[in-house]
Design a binder for these strands. Structure first.
Lengths: 127, 127
DNA sequence: GTAGATGCAAACGCTTTGCCGCTTA
DNA sequence: TAAGCGGCAAAGCGTTTGCATCTAC
């Protein structure tokens, strides 16, 4: 039986993912957690992410053309907004896609799920 | 002045992208064009894609969590359907996203563009 | 004949793995 | 004190680049 241990590294990694305003990339996690744990290895970040996903503490968020990002589980069905200026990714809690599960589209495609990313400027970058 | 040449390799690559039912990945392009040009190098495919993008013959299509794919220019604003069974990607000509350019969302995000991918089963895989 | 294209192999950048000393329980 | 964990460095893997050869024009 495999026991999961509480280490400074994993605590810092999970804490940073939880406190972020949106999903974080591996590099962002490494950078943020590395401020608390100097010398934190990148391999440790990858291994912690893998373990946290298996424990269902975090989920992967895939955006078009970008590295995988990670956020805590339980945020429910939501989409993301990507600022074209500062390149930050934010969570949105609305869903403007009018296609219920089970809809059949022209061409015979039966829809089960969807992924939407909006692009533009966040309020900080508009000024 | 740089002249673009007509070579068997590039012709085969562009032809296969044009004749596909949806956007193709590098591996798919290499595999299909390689049937016409045995020994076709993967570097040639990458370089042809780069040149075709610069000539605006093709555009890149990014889907969440997948390799970049390529399709001919001029297909206009559209989205993609990804079959969860056969893993093929198809073009859709409808847009069920009710957010015009310039809309400001709660949180102060101003939307300029969006990317939508639908997931489900294509008609071939439903039977 | 020459600039541009190709194929091969080496170089790259990011992710994963092996090894071994360190730490948590 | 032992199983799990962390750091380092090497291995993988897809993409890009350098180089010598070949080819379209």
């Amino acid at each position: 039986m495999k026991t999961v241990r509480n280490t400074r590294q994993r605590n810092a990694i999970l804490k940073n993912i939880r406190e972020a305003e949106g999903p974080l990339s591996v590099a962002e996690i490494h950078e943020r957690a590395g401020r608390e744990i100097p010398g934190l290895g990148i391999a440790t970040v990858y291994r912690a992410i893998k373990a946290l996903r298996e424990d269902e503490e975090i989920v992967v968020v895939e955006l078009p053309g970008e590295e995988p990002r990670y956020e805590p589980v339980g945020r429910g069905h939501h989409h993301h907004f990507r600022c074209l200026s500062c390149r930050q990714t934010f969570d949105l809690d609305m869903c403007p896609v009018g296609i219920p599960q089970g809809t059949t589209l022209p061409g015979g495609y039966v829809v089960e799920d969807h992924s939407l990313t909006l692009y533009g400027r966040c309020s900080d970058c508009l000024n």
